Simulated scan of single mutants.
Amino acid sequence: MSNLEERPAEVTCEAETSPGVQLMTPRDVPLGGPRAMTVRRTLPQRERSLIGAWCFVDHYGPDDVADTGGMSVAPHPHTGLQTVSWLFTGEVEHRDSAGNHAMVRPGEVNLMTAGHGISHSEVSPPQTRTLHGAQLWVALPDGARDQAPGFAHHAPTPVTGAGWEARVFLGSLLGDTSPVATATPLLGAELLLDPGTTLTLDVDPGFEHGVLVDRGAVDVAGTRAAAHDLAYVPPGAASLTLTSYDEAVRVLLLGGPPFGESIVMWWNFVGRSNEEIVSFREQWQAQLTDAGLVDGRFGIPVGEDLPPIPAPPLPNARLKQRH
């Protein structure tokens, strides 16, 4: 998904520490015009920019497509990151400049690697009446961020227990391991808890974790997180306990070791310096011509007729990287 803010803020990301569970609430971001769907953005925030390599969390729906018009995100570029698409309801059609054409469906992860540069579009088909899901970005480490673009798909088999169900789409949890390769160790899983269920998870003590609450309210290691909250859990513990209250709960559990690299994230680009971001923007704009999108660093999405999205103006101040 593209960041369609007209004036996207510079995001400078560094390693951070926290003494305990930290609750983050979302801000609403409209994706386009007045009838466009709105997403709830919980990462990045002023107080925290990354959870492991996870650098962007948009959570949306359930949205009535008749009211919002659904998802219609025209071709746009990415560098230095991976997009992770996860749906609860509906479908989204994906096309990218690496030649991939796929449907995003509930319970199936689509991971697109931008690497050196890619462009893609995301459009909900006419048969989709309700859209509900999450769009996530992963920052690529310096040694992997210039790799060729790629795409992976996986439909995890549910893992079940007393009062709970899990789908592990990245990494390992509850005895299940996703085959999807990532450049840094990552965890991504959907967890469903019946009312009044306690689930204690064995986790890597070197990971920091984020619990994104889709519905219900859940106790995360002793802290209550309500629907749409993102609860951050710092590294150090070998287990993580989740407890639902008097209603069913659905969460996304994200995790990974602290990233350890500073990044500059602006619009749809992840880089390391002001000069890189300026160059990425210039190269994308050079592909936008009166005759349509021409080939270049970001390629042309296969079979896509929507006019591409121009990059917004850069801020007046120099984009800075902190170490």
Rank of each mutant, 00 (worst) to 15 (best):
V264G: 01
H101A: 15
H116E: 12
E5W: 00
P312V: 07
P30H: 06
H78D: 13
D219Q: 08
F298Y: 12
L131C: 03
C13Y: 07
A74K: 08
L230N: 07
I118L: 15
V92W: 09
H153A: 14
W266Y: 14
L242M: 06
G271P: 03
R27M: 09
L136Q: 02
T17Q: 07
L242R: 05
P44Y: 06
P149L: 13
D142Y: 03
V264A: 10
I263K: 12
Q45F: 03
V213Q: 07
W267G: 06
E93V: 11
S124P: 00
R48K: 03
A139C: 03
W267Q: 05
T89A: 15
G188P: 00
A144R: 12
I51P: 00
G20P: 00
G296H: 13
M71W: 04
G61A: 07
R41Q: 08
P125R: 13
E14R: 14
P75C: 07
S49R: 10
G115M: 10
Q287P: 02
Q287W: 14
G271S: 06
A227P: 02
P30G: 12
E247S: 14
D295M: 12
R95G: 02
D28Q: 11
L252N: 01
L212E: 01
G115P: 04
V159A: 15
P34L: 10
D28S: 11
G236C: 09
G133D: 05
H153L: 12
E10A: 15
V233M: 02
S72Q: 12
L288S: 02
A36N: 05
T177I: 01
T198I: 07
L140M: 14
V211C: 03
H101R: 14
Q127N: 07
P19D: 04
A102M: 06
A66M: 09
E247A: 15
P301W: 04
T157F: 03
R7Q: 13
D219N: 09
Q147S: 13
D64T: 11
Q285A: 14
Q82W: 06
L170N: 06
D28C: 03
V159W: 04
L192M: 07
S244T: 09
A238L: 02
T68F: 04
R41S: 01
V203Y: 02
V92F: 07
E47K: 14
G33F: 00
S124F: 13
S244N: 05
Q283W: 05
V302T: 12
C55A: 11
A15V: 15
S2M: 04
L314M: 11
D142T: 09
S2P: 00
H154S: 11
G256E: 02
G69H: 03
G80T: 08
Q45H: 03
Q82G: 09
V211W: 01
H94R: 02
G196V: 06
L87M: 14
L199C: 08
E282L: 13
V109I: 07
P62C: 00
F298W: 05
T223C: 01
A15G: 14
L140K: 03
R322V: 13
